[in-house]
Amino acid sequence: MRLRQILHNLLGNAIKFTESGLIRLRLTVQDRSTGSVLLQWQVTDTGIGIPESAMDKLFNPFYQVAGVPSGSGAGLGLSICKRLSDLMGGNIRVVSEPGLGSSFSLFITLAVVDTAPPPPLMTLAAADADAPCLNMRVLVAEDNLVSQAVLREQLEALGAQPTVVPDGKRALDIWHTQTFDVVITDINMPRLNGYELAKALRERGVNVPIIGITANAMREEEQRCLAVGMSAWVVKPLSMDMLRQALVAHCRKANGLLITTPPPTLKDDQEGWIELSQAMRQLMSKTLVTDIAHIEQGLSDMDAIVLRQRLHSLSGALASVNAQTLHIFCQQLEGAIYDGPLTTALVQQIRALCVRLAAVAKCLSD
C-alpha cells in the first residue's frame, strides 16, 4: 500500500507536468542476496523539468516550484513520498533538466520470502457477482479529471449514482438541488478544499457521511479529517474494494444492504491473519474477551457512545492483525450506530459480533 501511494504521487506529478512526449515507469533489480533484494522504481517523464535552485527544497512540505501552473496542488505529494520512503528504510533520488523532463527513483531493500503460489485470478465481474448493489446517490468533489473519471466508473460499477463536481465550492452550490446519501471529497482542491467543504456542510446541519480522499497516510491526517466533521478518510490510490468498504462502513443505506448477509464462519473470520506468536495469541484472546465484556455492558445500558468507542478501538486492533472480515464488520456496526438509533436489529447484529469474537478468542486461547 505504501509503495502504491508513493508511485501514485510520482506518476500523478509526471502526468500533471508533462504535456507531450512520454511517461515511463520502470522496476529493476539493483542487487540481490540470499535473503533480500534492492529494487528501484523509476518514474521518468518529458515534462517541464525542475530548476537546480529548487532541488534542495523539493521534498519540503508545502513547497512548490516557482512558475508551475496554478492549481497544481498543495505541495505535499513529494514530502509524503520522502517520509514514507524514509520510514521504510528507502530513499528517493531525482535528476531533472528544465525543459527536458525529470526522473524520480525510489530505492528500497525488501526481504525475499517463500510463498505458496497465488490462487487463480478472478475477473472483476466474477469477484463482484455476489456483492449487493449500493443503490445510493453520491456527491463527489474532485478536481483531477482522471480521478473524476475513475471514481465515476467505480461508483457506477458498485450500483451508485455519482454526481461529480470539480471543487468544494461547486459541491456546496448544488447540495440543496437534490438528495445525496454520502459525500466523497478530495482533500486538496482549488477554491474550497475538502476540509473547508466538510466544515461548511456540517455548519449547515448536513449529517450524511463525508469521506475524505487523500494521498497522505499519516495519523495526523486522520485527526484533521475527523476534526472538521468527516466520517472517515481513505488513502489514494483507491481500489474498488476499498471504496465499497468505506461506503458500507459509514453509509447507513449501504450498511443495511451488507449487514443482513449471512455471517461468515470461524474459518472465514480467521482467514488472512498475520502469523502470531503464542504470547500474542494469548494477548489477543484476552483482549477480545475484555472487549466483549465492555460491548455487552454497553448493550445492557443501551449506551451508544460506549459501543461506538469500543467498536472503533476493536476495529483498529483487528486491522493490525489483518483480520479483515471482523474489522470490516466492526466498521459497519460503528457506522450504523453513528447514523441512527440502537434498533433491535442493530443490537442483534452487535450480539452476533460478540458471538463470533468469542469463538475466535477461544480458538486463539486453545
Rank of each mutant, 00 (worst) to 15 (best):
Met1Lys: 09
Arg2Cys: 02
Ile6Asp: 03
Asn13Ala: 05
Asn13Asp: 10
Ala14Asn: 08
Ala14Cys: 11
Ser20Tyr: 12
Arg26Ala: 10
Thr28Ala: 14
Gln30Arg: 05
Ser36Ala: 09
Ser36Gly: 03
Val37Trp: 09
Leu38Pro: 09
Leu39Pro: 05
Gln40Asn: 08
Gln40Val: 14
Gln42Pro: 00
Asp45Ala: 01
Glu52Pro: 00
Ala54Val: 03
Leu58Cys: 07
Phe59Ser: 08
Phe62Gly: 04
Tyr63Ala: 07
Val65Asp: 01
Ala66Arg: 15
Gly71Trp: 03
Gly75Leu: 03
Leu76Pro: 02
Ser79Pro: 03
Leu84Ser: 02
Leu84Ala: 06
Asp86Val: 12
Met88Thr: 04
Asn91His: 12
Ser96Leu: 08
Glu97Cys: 01
Leu100His: 04
Gly101Asp: 02
Ser102Gly: 12
Ser105Asn: 04
Leu106Asn: 07
Leu106Trp: 03
Ile108Asn: 06
Thr115Asn: 08
Ala116Pro: 06
Pro120Met: 05
Thr123Val: 00
Ala126Lys: 12
Ala131Gln: 07
Asn135Tyr: 05
Met136Pro: 05
Glu142Asn: 13
Val146Gly: 07
Ala149Asn: 04
Val150Lys: 01
Gln154Cys: 00
Glu156Asp: 06
Pro162Asn: 02
Pro162Ser: 10
Val164Tyr: 05
Arg170Phe: 12
Arg170Tyr: 14
Ile174Tyr: 05
Gln178His: 09
Ile187Tyr: 08
Val206Met: 00
Asn207Ala: 13
Pro209Lys: 05
Pro209Cys: 02
Ile211Tyr: 04
Asn216Glu: 12
Ala217Tyr: 01
Glu222Leu: 15
Ser231Ile: 01
Trp233Ile: 15
Lys236Ile: 06
Met240Lys: 15
Met240Asn: 13
Met240Trp: 04
Asp241Leu: 12
Gln245Cys: 05
Gln245Ala: 09
Gln245Leu: 14
His250Ser: 03
Cys251Asp: 03
Arg252Leu: 05
Asn255Lys: 11
Leu258Trp: 13
Leu258Thr: 14
Ile259Cys: 15
Ile259Arg: 15
Asp269Val: 10
Glu275Ala: 12
Lys286Trp: 02
Thr287Met: 14
Val289Asn: 10
Thr290Tyr: 11
Asp291Arg: 15
His294Phe: 07
Gln297Lys: 15
Gly298Phe: 10
Asp301Phe: 09
Ala304Arg: 13
Gln309Phe: 03
Gln309Tyr: 09
Ser315Phe: 07
Gly316Cys: 03
Ser320Lys: 13
Ala323Tyr: 01
Gln324Arg: 15
Gln332Ser: 04
Gly335Pro: 00
Tyr338Asp: 09
Pro341Arg: 00
Thr343Gln: 11
Thr343Ser: 15
Gln348Met: 15
Gln349Lys: 04
Ile350Thr: 01
Ile350Gly: 10
Leu353Ile: 12
Val355Lys: 09
Leu357Met: 15
Leu357Ile: 13
Ala358Met: 00
Ala358Arg: 13
Ala361Pro: 08
Cys363Pro: 00
Leu364Gln: 15
Asp366Arg: 12
Asp366Cys: 11
